[in-house]
C-alpha cells in the first residue's frame, strides 16, 4: 500500500438527541485507521475531530466492564473488543443496541434489563435468614460444583444478547437471555438455596418458555457465556421439578472453623451495610 497514504474509513453513526430530534438521524465522518484500532478508538477520534457532542457509554477499554455494547455493522458487539480491520470494508456503521430504549446517540437504556435481573435475585440465597443477613464464614464447594455455573458467571451484563434475541424484539414481558442466564447461574450454584423462590417468577409467562432456541444470544455473547445453554438447562430443571423428580439438596454448609491456625486480625465482623429496611 506504499504511496496510498493512511487508510481511512467512514464512521456512519446513528445520532439521537432527546428533546431536539423527533427521529434518529445518520451522520458520517471519515477518520484515519491505525493498526489495531478498535471501534471505540474510532469513536473517540470522531468525537475529538468532528462531533464533540457524540455520546456513548464506555469505561474499561478491555472487554471487562460491559459498558460499550453497540450495534456495529448490524451485529451487537463490544466497541472496545472489535477492531476496525476485522470488520472489513470502508464503512463502520454504529447504532445504539436495539430492543432497549435509546437515551442519547449510542447510549441504550439498560434499566429495564437490570430491573428484571434484580427481580430474579442474582445472589446467593440461604435457607437460614440469620445466615443470609450475617454470613458467618465461606461455604464449601468442590471444583466440580464450581464448573456447573462458572461459565455463566463470566457475564458482564453488556446487553448484546438482549439486542440479538428475536423474542425480546417484540415481547417486553420476556425476561430475556441475560437475567435468565444469571438466574440459572445462581440456581446451579451448590451454595444457593433459592431455586424455589426464583421458581415463582420463572414458571410464569416471562420465564424461559418464551425462548425457542434461535441461538442468537450465544452467537453474539462477547464473553462466551452461552445464555442459550443456561436457558435450556433451566427449562430442564424446572420441568424435572414440575414432575417432582428433582432431588432437593440443602445449600452447601458453612465451612468448619479453621483450627490449629487461629485467624488473626479479624477481631469483629465488619459493620453491616445499611439496607433499605434500615
Amino acid at each position: 500500500m506504499a504511496g496510498t497514504g493512511p487508510r481511512r474509513v467512514t464512521f456512519r453513526l446513528r445520532r439521537f438527541e432527546p428533546g431536539t430530534d423527533r427521529e434518529p438521524r445518520w451522520e458520517e465522518h471519515r477518520v484515519e485507521v491505525s493498526p489495531g484500532m478498535t471501534v471505540l478508538d474510532g469513536l473517540w477520534k470522531v468525537k475529538e475531530l468532528h462531533a464533540p457532542s457524540l455520546a456513548w457509554r464506555s469505561s474499561c477499554r478491555m472487554g471487562i466492564c460491559g459498558s460499550c455494547g453497540m450495534l456495529i455493522n448490524g451485529r451487537p458487539r463490544l466497541a472496545c473488543n472489535t477492531q476496525v480491520a476485522e470488520l472489513g470494508g470502508d464503512v463502520v456503521t454504529v447504532a445504539a443496541l436495539p430492543n432497549f430504549g435509546t437515551v442519547k446517540d449510542l447510549v441504550p437504556d439498560l434499566g429495564s434489563m437490570f430491573e428484571t435481573h434484580r427481580d430474579l435475585m442474582p445472589y446467593l440465597l440461604r435457607d437460614d435468614p440469620a445466615e443470609q443477613d450475617d454470613p458467618t464464614r465461606e461455604y464449601r464447594q468442590t471444583p466440580g460444583e464450581l464448573e456447573r455455573y462458572l461459565q455463566f458467571s463470566y457475564c458482564i451484563k453488556c446487553g448484546c444478547c438482549m439486542a440479538a434475541c428475536p423474542t425480546v424484539a417484540t415481547d417486553p414481558h420476556y425476561a430475556g437471555p441475560m437475567p435468565l442466564g444469571q438466574a440459572q447461574r445462581y440456581n446451579s450454584d451448590s451454595r444457593d438455596g433459592g431455586f424455589r423462590r426464583r421458581r415463582e417468577t420463572l414458571s410464569g409467562g416471562g420465564g424461559p418458555w418464551r425462548c425457542h432456541f434461535a441461538g442468537e444470544c450465544s452467537q453474539v455473547c462477547p464473553k462466551g457465556v452461552d445464555p442459550a445453554k443456561a436457558i435450556q438447562l433451566m427449562k430442564r430443571d424446572l420441568v424435572v421439578d414440575l414432575l417432582r423428580l428433582r432431588r432437593r439438596r440443602p445449600p452447601a454448609p458453612v465451612a468448619d472453623e479453621p483450627h490449629g491456625t487461629p485467624r488473626e486480625g479479624i477481631a469483629a465482623p465488619p459493620p453491616r451495610t445499611a439496607t433499605a429496611e434500615g
Binding site: 439521537f16 436495539p98 430492543n99 430504549g101 428475536p166 425480546v168 424484539a169 417484540t170
Partner: peptide
Amino acid sequence: SRARPNRLGVLGWVGGGRWG
C-alpha cells in the same frame, strides 16, 4: 424503557440477526 423505544419488532423475528 422511558427512553426512546428502539425495539426491532416483528422485523426482529425474521431479520435483525441470522448469524447462525
